[in-house]
Amino acid sequence: MSVRAAVISQIETVAREKSLKLPPLADDLVLLGSGLDSLSLAILVVRLADQLGYDPFEAGLSEMPITLGDFIRMYERHAA
């Protein structure tokens, strides 16, 4: 599974568990405008760390992701 597919699939799982209705998961979607709150994002980051074996946030970045595209690229950069 690609990094992108893993991220999308985990977002869909969190949304299902929390009964969130998310807009289409496009790259320009603003993460915090999508219905995901900080708690959902934390769950997402922890589960992705279990699945992919790394947490790019732990790498000490100084910019926070704003859009879904930013978020996916953080993981892809780390995987590369």
Binding site: S38, L39, L41, A42, I43, V45, V46, A49, D55, F57, E58
Partner: peptide, 12 residues
């Protein structure tokens, strides 16, 4: 608790 950089910690 498990550390993460979004909420500091989260319950597991």
């Amino acid at each position: 608790g498990r550390r993460n950089r979004i909420t500091g910690a989260i319950v597991v």
